[in-house]
Design a protein around this nucleic acid. Structure first.
Lengths: 178, 178
DNA sequence: ATACTGTTTCAGTAATTTCTAAAAAGCCTG
DNA sequence: CAGGCTTTTTAGAAATTACTGAAACAGTAT
């Protein structure tokens, strides 16, 4: 289903099973339910744990590891965003910054340089924003998401207001001035 | 580099080349620069066009197609978000809703049902939020992103205020009450 | 210690994805 | 409508990625 998320089929299936299950499952149960090999399950669980999407626990009187997913879906979403930032955004940013160190020699390179700078700036903002998100507790996040429509509208209103009052004074804030 | 985004190496290379180039390029030039086959470039360009990340244009006196990327990086980001919503989020939502139509029969299924409902709700919110984003012009988006830190802080302040005034009355809003 | 239970690694195999070259299909121009 | 010029499709080769069973490894209770 959603196997275009950089994870493979089996890993997705394991996660879905654990997410939907009403109790922690051990590797054996997962193997049987999904009909894939034991080692495949082991690998998949390891990957999911490295993403902090799955936790393991021990049940008293049983030596098996039992696996489950966090309850709160907002917490899950936050984890996903954070891990993706760490694994995808930040390394790319580091590389971009390195590349941007050396100056351009001709006009074509200058253009490429500027484009990379724009990309870098945007990615930095997204990375910062993601960091901020991490500090939020799930409840605030819920609220932030819910008000999604309102924030832009608020901005637009502010915009109109400042345009009106701005016109009177200087006719400045209408763009293209750097 | 960023080839874990559901697109393959070649497509990524083509996009990077066009993004960094200071002028539109034709398929032949891309083929030569990247050292991949002509047909591969053709496929890649087709895919990028279907994502609306690359546009083609004709130069007068030349029958070749010339390709370029939009200038504004915010516009690019918006396009990416929208296409990903269309291709990944919305189809999954449709499927989820379908599945949620049929009621649960036992307690394990009831739990799974509830989990799917939570997932569905979250995805709906994200989808709505993405729709709202599309209505924003790049400049507003820029601003929204820039204030990223401020919005949560505002929320937290509001939270504290309501806590203080709430304590006096009922001692309600401190969590874990469903 | 050792037998038992459970996990991880590994190397070969299977499946999928990506890439290419060649042929087909379009499209203007004369 | 033929002939060049370009793009697209296609079918199979090449490369990559995922999966498996077997063996190695780790921990614990007797």
């Amino acid at each position: 289903m959603g196997s275009r998320w950089g994870i493979n089929r089996t890993v997705g299936q394991i996660y879905a099973l654990l997410y939907l299950s009403d109790k922690p499952l051990n590797a054996e149960e997962i193997t049987e339910t999904l009909g894939v090999s034991r080692s495949n399950v082991s690998m998949g669980l390891k990957e999911l744990q490295s993403w902090r999407l799955v936790r393991s626990q021990h049940l008293p009187g049983d030596r098996k590891d039992y696996f489950s997913t966090p309850e709160d879906i907002m917490e899950i979403a936050l984890t996903l965003v954070e891990e993706r930032r760490k694994r995808e955004l930040d390394p790319t940013l580091t590389l971009l910054r390195q590349t941007l160190m050396e100056p351009a020699t001709d006009s074509a390179e200058a253009h490429a340089h500027e484009r990379m700078q724009q990309m870098c700036d945007l990615m930095e903002q997204v990375s910062d924003w993601s960091h901020d998100l991490q500090k939020l507790n799930p409840k605030d996040l819920q609220r932030l998401l819910a008000m999604g429509t309102a924030v832009p509208k608020l901005l637009q209103m502010k915009d109109k207001l400042s345009l009106i009052s701005g016109k009177e004074k200087h006719k400045r804030s209408d763009g293209n001035h750097e």
